[in-house]
């Protein structure tokens, strides 16, 4: 189990290295305007070149790549040029991350609790009314872009309930709508996957044996189906962070939450290259971390993986 996790960790690090390099290469393609700061129009070509030279962007690519990794190892993410000129990116992020983490975790818990309840309810009523009812919810959320329904939630969620339209960290009520908005797609995804995994388990041979044993459907659901369906779900859960990023970017900017997602939108629209680069690095690393955690979680839950390297009879 430990050995498996270490091997998996090593693989993740290799992937991380490749992803970072790829991101670095893409970053060299960024429009150079994004490095000049506010006065881009007034700069002479010589001044522009001086700025690029100072940032090391005119060095040969291998020198740039080396510097890029040296900076990363030192934990240096560069300096913002427009968003807050000459302020280290790290400092900007330090103020933003707590909000994103708070909302991210809150939405994760909410989508887990509601999504699993919905998924179980669907699997138990497979093919019946409630299954179809919740399936329509899942279909709607999966098909319609978040930009559409989240907008209407903001519009009518505030006018009907009187909840605030903009985020205010000291007002608990202003947390409700963004949290719910962020969870909607997670709830749909969790419900859909859990239902699918449970239905998969239901079709397996060991369920037939459990039935032949004389167990009631309810007991089979709890003791066999649900328990086994949790393994693939646990594998997929952390990786689901990947899919909720666009939702969180959207919700943060809709409600003016001072988090990383809103920051990314601002950084792109204002062409602040160092800031974009730092955020892309963080989001990409999050994706890899999610997949890694998913595999480790599955190894903990599934004895076939857990015992793989301990000489079990196979």
């Amino acid at each position: 189990m430990l050995k498996y996790s270490l091997r998996r960790l090593l693989h993740s690090l290799v992937t991380l290295f490749m992803v970072l390099t790829l991101v670095f290469l893409l970053m060299r393609l960024l429009p150079v305007e994004g490095y000049y700061g506010e006065r881009a129009d007034k700069l002479t070509p010589a001044q522009k070149e001086a700025i690029l030279r100072k940032m090391g962007l005119l060095d040969p690519w291998y020198v740039q790549l080396r510097n890029f990794y040296l900076q990363l190892l030192r934990g240096d993410l560069g300096v913002s040029v427009i968003y807050r000129a000459n302020v280290p990116v790290k400092e900007i992020l330090a103020a933003k991350i707590p909000y994103s983490v708070a909302f991210g975790l809150g939405a994760l818990v909410l989508s887990l609790v509601a999504g699993l309840a919905m998924g179980i309810h669907m699997a138990q009523n497979k093919g019946l009314f409630w299954d179809k009812f919740w399936t329509w919810y899942v279909v709607f959320i999966n098909a319609v872009p978040g930009a559409v329904y989240l907008l209407f939630i903001q519009l009518y969620g505030t006018s009907i309930t009187g909840l605030p339209m903009l985020f205010d960290r000291y007002n608990v009520r202003s947390w409700i709508l963004p949290l719910v908005s962020m969870s909607l797609s997670g709830i749909a995804a969790n419900a859909m996957w859990l239902r699918r995994f449970m239905v998969d388990e239901l079709n397996k041979d060991y369920i037939r044996l459990a039935r032949a044993k004389g167990m009631s459907s309810r007991a089979i659901m709890v003791k066999h189906v649900l328990r086994n369906a949790f393994v693939p779900l646990a594998n997929y859960l952390p990786a689901s962070i990947l899919f909720t990023i666009s939702g969180s970017i959207y919700v943060e900017s809709l409600y003016s939450i001072p988090g990383m997602g809103g920051l990314l939108v601002t950084a792109i629209s204002r062409q602040d290259n160092p800031l974009v680069q730092a955020l892309v690095l963080i989001y990409s690393s999050l994706g890899i971390l999610g997949l890694f955690l998913g595999d480790v979680l599955m190894a903990i839950l599934d004895p076939r993986i857990r015992l793989e390297k301990q000489g079990g009879a196979r």
């Binding site: 490749m18 992803v19 991101v23 990023i245 989001y283 990409s284 890899i288 997949l291």
Partner: peptide
């Protein structure tokens, strides 16, 4: 397989945004 791993590890949102940003 490795190339697939690398690309699928970067959130689609981020890839889309980057390309759209780079190409105008």
């Amino acid at each position: 397989t490795e190339a697939y791993n690398v690309i699928s590890n970067i959130p689609t949102t981020i890839i889309l945004m980057l390309i759209a940003y780079i190409l105008r």
